[in-house]
Design a protein around this nucleic acid. Structure first.
Length: 431
DNA sequence: TCTGGGGTCCTAGGACCC
DNA sequence: TCTGGGGTCCTAGGACCC
């Protein structure tokens, strides 16, 4: 049976989340910043029209921001995560078969819904999500995921598409592909686009018409897959069950360069603790803990240092104390006195489901296998969920909560946690 | 001088995504 | 002065095995 995929994409998602709770932002240029208020990672249409680029450093956009009175927000992930969950549950009322692809996108399997008119169904989805969550979305519908992404692009960018677009027949497909730059194809990034451009493959249609063996040779199996998907042959399935993660990373860049061993070590301990929480949340155990720390990569050529080292806990674990201990051992190999560090992080590698991790016959029993230690972690997580992340923590993280704020959390323009924190609940007054 | 053939595992690096 | 934080997959090459 022929497949039908829909891609539902939230328009300017982070900006739209801010607008739901501050309607005065409607129609005005708005941007949302990265974690450290360093880069612009989301822009309203008005901001895009003013030429503000994705990923542009804030300091480079200052003048434009002032000139056009652009509204600037720090990113507020608790808010965006909660709004995302609301959008996704709205989508689940339209089909049981759904893949949560990212915080602001989902693929839906619409096979069997053709009778209702796919365009109408797409419009129904848009209307419902907007009414139930306040978030505007666009909907692209096509026989493959890659074409659905293209259809979503058309739905969003082409005036007259009205937020929904369906690619069902070959004529429409060729017509649309001819109007889209090759770089907009899902799976074709900057590098490939440049390589293709140098061979006069400029539009998605040019790529579509490129012989498969050539693509296979130059771009590997992933490139060939993209090509076939563009031609309407579905190579990618809906992944409704998200597979277990293979790596978990927690990293931050520092607001200012840091030299202090203690400050960086305590940061790494905090990252390790957060990573252990994520492991427990996902029911995973980690067998290798990797730590890295780096100086400014935009500094003078040759000055860049990035140290990385790994350490294995005695047995796969998700216990905060065990993970932190391993991270501290790796940290000692990474830190170099006298350097100005600009960021650090930890990576959890060799992950396995808690039930089937390989034990170690010769190692002392791991605390995470001990029921008392497990109960401790469960209580630890419950308390931190209730009172606030980081309220309960191990000593290695240090007590310098005040000082740490200066180290890596710079968020000067953050909106309140309207939906996830009682004290931030918006107040509505009737006149 | 001559120096197999095939397999697996691991790692680093390159490409991509949001 | 100021440049995010997560992830994935594929490939090539080296080490090692028989």
């Amino acid at each position: 049976m022929k497949q039908v995929f829909a891609l539902v994409d939230c328009n300017n998602f982070f900006v739209s989340c801010e607008r739901v709770f501050d309607p005065a932002l409607e129609g005005r240029p708005v941007v949302v910043l990265s974690n450290n208020d360093g880069c612009i990672i989301a822009r309203s249409n008005e901001a895009k029209a003013l030429g503000i680029a994705m990923g542009e450093p804030l300091f480079k956009a200052r003048a434009e921001i002032r000139r056009h009175d652009i509204q600037v927000y720090s990113s507020n992930y608790p808010l965006y995560g909660d709004m995302s969950a609301r959008v996704m549950s709205a989508l689940q009322t339209f089909t049981p078969d759904i893949e949560l692809y990212s915080i602001d996108e989902a693929f839906l399997n619409l096979a069997g819904f053709e009778g209702r008119g796919l365009d109408n169904y797409g419009q129904d989805i848009r209307t419902a999500v907007k009414r139930w969550t306040g978030i505007p979305v666009s909907v692209g519908i096509a026989p493959t995921k890659t074409l659905a992404k293209i259809a979503g692009y058309v739905a969003k960018k082409f005036p007259g598409a009205n937020g929904t677009f369906v690619i069902a027949d070959e004529a429409t497909r060729r017509d649309v592909l001819a109007k889209i730059p090759v770089a907009e194809i899902w799976g074709i990034g900057r590098r490939w686009a440049k390589m293709l451009g140098s061979r006069s493959i400029e539009t998605a249609l040019d790529f579509h018409d490129t012989p498969e063996p050539w693509v296979r040779k130059r771009m590997g199996v992933t490139g060939a897959r993209t090509l076939l998907e563009l031609r309407g042959l579905a190579c990618l399935d809906l992944e409704s069950q998200s597979p277990d993660k293979q790596t978990i990373r927690v990293s931050r860049s520092f607001a200012k360069p840091v030299e202090s061993r203690r400050v960086i070590r305590e940061s790494v301990a905090a990252f390790a603790a957060r990573a252990a929480e994520k492991l427990r949340r996902d029911g995973l155990l980690c067998s290798v803990v990797n730590v890295f720390a780096a100086t400014n990569r935009f500094g003078p050529q040759g000055d860049y240092y990035r140290g990385t080292a790994s350490s294995a806990p005695p047995a796969p674990s998700n216990h905060t104390a065990t993970i932190t201990h391993a991270a501290m051992a790796a940290f000692e190999q990474v830190y170099k006195p006298g350097l100005q560090f600009k960021g650090a992080g930890v990576m959890m590698l060799g992950l396995a489901r808690a039930g089937d991790a390989q034990g170690n016959l010769f190692a002392p029993p791991d605390p995470s296998r001990d029921t008392r230690a497990q109960a401790l972690m469960t209580a630890f997580d419950a308390i931190n969920t209730r009172i606030g992340r980081g309220m309960l923590r191990y000593g290695a993280v240090g007590v310098a909560e005040r000082g740490k704020r200066g180290v890596y959390t710079v968020q000067n323009r953050r909106s309140p946690n309207y939906t996830t924190n009682w004290s931030d609940l918006p107040i509505v007054r009737a006149h």
